[in-house]
């Protein structure tokens, strides 16, 4: 960071101080997000503990292959954005734009697979926990709990990913316009932290939804 060349707000001692504060602010925000998603994970513990057979019967109907592909997509998205950060720090802004665009496309691919294909397939099989729920008998109650967790958890994660897509698109635009570069990187770093955090949330959701109930 070239402090003497980069403007900063009056309350900061330098541009690097301003950038450090922005990054620390994102870490603080992510700390609140950890607790937010923690409540979701706690609901999984409660629901599965008291309804294990039904909960696992519901989980067995989830689309493991799509979930696994989506996991690979998000991990790769985090890698590609991180590669872009390394490149823009060395002044390679065009290479960063390509990496960020690739990360954005991977995020979009996740959304299409999750909501246009997987959700539609789930709804076609009557997995939404409503009146015509597709699992009947003694296990229906636990299975409904699983699918409630599934739809709520994936929706909340999807909202976060949609916000991430908007942020990455904004960063691409600003880098393209020359507003962000090796001299002023804070927004690029902050968005990268959020982008990878959304990936981490999915890494925890992946076994909760697709794996643990399936290993019967």
């Amino acid at each position: 960071m070239h402090d003497e060349a980069v403007a900063h707000e009056f309350q900061y001692a330098s541009a690097s101080h301003q950038a450090d504060t922005a990054v620390a602010g994102m870490w603080l925000f992510l700390a609140t997000e950890v607790v937010f998603f923690g409540a979701l994970f706690l609901s999984w513990i409660f629901a599965r503990h008291f309804n294990q057979a039904g909960f696992d019967a519901g989980a067995e109907r989830s689309e493991l292959e799509i979930g696994t592909i989506n996991t690979v997509i998000l991990i790769t998205g985090s890698l590609v954005y991180s590669l872009g950060v390394v490149l823009i720090e060395k002044g390679k802004t065009r290479a960063f734009i390509m990496c960020a665009a690739a990360a954005w496309l991977l995020g979009l691919a996740f959304m299409i697979l999750k909501f246009a294909i997987e959700w539609r397939h789930d709804l076609d099989r009557h997995m939404f926990p409503g009146a015509d729920f597709g699992i009947t008998g003694d296990l229906a109650g636990g299975a409904k709990l699983f699918w409630s967790f599934y739809f709520f958890g994936t929706f909340v994660h999807g909202v976060h990913l949609a916000v991430g897509l908007g942020l990455v698109a904004w960063v691409i635009l600003r880098v393209w316009q020359g507003a962000f570069s090796a001299a002023y990187l804070a927004p690029v770093l902050v968005v990268g932290l959020y982008w990878t955090f959304v990936d981490i949330v999915w890494l925890i959701l992946y076994p909760l939804i697709y794996l643990i109930g399936r290993a019967t």
Partner: peptide, 27 residues
């Protein structure tokens, strides 16, 4: 993915989360 297809006790299945925690730490 592979281990999830093995048969083991329902109480032990959450062990699969350990790998996710390692991945989260790496990220």
């Amino acid at each position: 993915y592979g281990v999830s297809r093995l048969h083991f006790a329902p109480g032990l299945r959450p062990v699969l989360l350990v790998l996710s925690v390692i991945m989260a730490a790496l990220a």
